[in-house]
Design a protein around this nucleic acid. Sequence first.
RNA 1: UCCUUGGUAGCUCAGCCGGUUAGAGCAUCUGACUGUUAAUCAGAGGGUCGCUGGUUCGAGCCCAGCCCGAGGAGCCA
Length: 478
Amino acid sequence: MSALHQLRIADWLKTTPTGQTITVSGWVRTKRGNKDIAFVALSDGSTINTLQIVAELVNFDEEIIKKIQTGCSLRVTGALVASQGAGQTVDLQAQKIEILGEADAEKFPLQKKKHTLEFLREIAHLRPRTNTFGAILRIRHALAFAIHKYFNDHHFYYIHAPIITGSDAEGAGEMFRVSTIDPQNPPKTGNGEIDYSQDFFGKSANLTVSGQLESELAAMALSRVYTFGPTFRAENSNTARHLAEFWMIEPEMAFFELTDNMDLAEDFLQYLIKYAMEHCADDLVFLEKRLIEEESQLKKEDRNPMPLLEKLKFVSETAFERITYTEAVAILEKSGRKFEFPVKWGIDLQSEHERYLVEKHFKKPVILTNYPKDIKAFYMKLDEDGKTVRAMDVLFPGIGEIIGGSQREEDYEKLSKRIDEMGIHRESLWWYLETRQYGTVPHSGFGLGFERLVLFVTGMGNIRDVIPFPRTPKNLEF
RNA sequence: UCCUUGGUAGCUCAGCCGGUUAGAGCAUCUGACUGUUAAUCAGAGGGUCGCUGGUUCGAGCCCAGCCCGAGGAGCCA
């Protein structure tokens, strides 16, 4: 049978064992046994669970059995039978064992024991073979798939925003330069600066920090669009919540106002969480157990108030609190709490403030809206009072800002004025401004950091552990 | 980038006030064991104490610089 149609371990574990002869392939997790019999836990990544291979040693060459060690790959043919042991329902009584690739036990870094996440980061080429990363990668896949499904079902078109861009006017962060100029001998202009007119694109180029502006252009024709692609920030951020390369989802909708935008964000997030709970139940149960075990060493106040699955259920079923920035500041001022950064209308809210609102005051996700215009981006729609803008940030417990979005300024004159006020180079945005001159409409959108979503759903603590090969300052291995 | 903290065996860690041959558990290897569940039991091997320089009769330990990790902060998604 073609490998394409072969059943996987996940499929076999669900079937009723009748002694039928099957063939499975995978990697050895552990081998146990005595001089008569060997038990091998085999994984093919299709599920967190392993298939137990039972080998009566009299039937096999001693050399073969010796080579079956943690990490090696096997193809096994045998009879699928009900297990005599207690730990699993089915066994594969091996008739033929083929070693596809050996793994020297003295050198193979993954052992039959717990490893720290920090150590596994150093062996990112092998960590998908652990239970934890297998679970995370399957959940990550399910969420990515669910994102496309949700948007498709809601009549959004998937737009591919460019990864190399010439515009640097968004102010979303430091950018990585893209260039083919010889760094040893760059062409210079008369005043000694590097002459990018001689570079590949004839001007200075960067990796994108956001697909939003391009998304807006497409929304002005297709009404509902979204991007889902890699995004790059050259910020020297060393935290458990930042990556230099991450994946972002950015829907942009014509004819959506701020409230519609909030409705979408809330429905979308709750759908994604429910999807993961429905399709990755085994993996989530495993991660929940892992988390409880890990947190058992912590003090009570440092633990998560709810087990993972309960938290996901709660967030996916509870309406998010929606309050304005001004109301939030009032709550913080009345809280009587001493914050490291004192609260005053006009300041950007700090982590400690957001955490208080989400984790202490409301105890559920919060959507903060109508921030002061001076702490937000130029493209956000000005409110009638002239002081605030129609921004919205979705704050999640333990994560902080998971979504940042806004209704966009569709009025040419107002947008133009904001660009000048904020000292932005308007010539490089001529194409963006034209959308406000030709058939402008009210529209809104937001950005969701994909890894932050995966972080929340998996309950993991460090964003470097929810992406296969993290890119962070001083780290470009693999 | 700032603050705090750490780097000792393959992994997780201990190592007293600077003192003789640097330890433990797990992993690995060898042996024992009639169905194991991170199997169990017994034994063995395994070290550039992050790097560079300095202080000292003597440095894993003290000092300086650098590299890397973790927690927190800032920036944000």
